[in-house]
Computed example of a mutant assay.
Amino acid sequence: MDLAEDKTEQLRKIYADNKFVNYLDMKIEEVTSGYAKMSMYVDYEKHTNLHRALHGGGLISLADTAMGIACVSTGKKVVTLAMTTNFISVIEAGETAIATAKIIHQGRRTIVAEGIVENLEGKLIGKLQATFFVIGEISLD
């Protein structure tokens, strides 16, 4: 990774006061321009469904946040317009979900990103694609 491109600390500062991200215990692991990696320990008391597995809403929240951060890393302020999710497998309470996201199209008004959620061993849990609407600029300084 090119250290000049590393935006991890900048994005951690921007998201430090995001109540939803903090409530779900999402962690920003790595950010470069157009790419983000996040993690979330699957807490039985907070993140699971009736089967002790990560709730679909938790998976979507983690991936949506990672894809949004990938967009923000380009200096764009965005909101999610649409998202498609494929649930592939489950991740149990006590495991860690890893979401990686990258921009696959960047226009002036919309950005399309794809996200993958895996466990620590690389088992595919979900695959997502989202379209974001650009609502402004954001300073990364």
Rank of each mutant, 00 (worst) to 15 (best):
I88T: 14
T74Q: 09
Q10S: 09
T110S: 12
M38V: 00
V90Y: 12
G58W: 13
V31D: 02
K46H: 12
V72W: 00
D43R: 08
K13W: 03
V112W: 00
I138M: 12
L54D: 09
I60C: 13
D2Q: 10
L62S: 10
I116P: 02
A36D: 08
A4I: 10
G56V: 00
E5A: 15
Q106G: 12
I116N: 14
I98V: 11
T85R: 00
L24K: 02
G34L: 09
E137W: 13
F87V: 14
D141N: 13
L140R: 02
Q129T: 15
K127N: 04
R109D: 15
E95Y: 12
K127Q: 09
T8G: 01
N22H: 06
I14Y: 01
N18Y: 13
L120D: 08
E118W: 08
V31L: 01
G107H: 13
K102M: 13
A63I: 07
H47C: 08
K19Y: 10
Q106F: 11
E30V: 01
G115F: 09
K37C: 08
L24H: 03
H47W: 08
N18M: 12
I111A: 11
A82I: 00
A93N: 15
M40Q: 14
T85P: 00
V78A: 07
A66K: 01
H55R: 09
K77S: 15
H105Q: 05
K76V: 07
K13M: 09
I135W: 06
T85Q: 01
L3G: 02
I103P: 03
A16G: 01
V90D: 13
R52F: 13
E29Y: 00
V79G: 06
T48N: 10
F87C: 11
N22D: 11
T100C: 11
V79P: 02
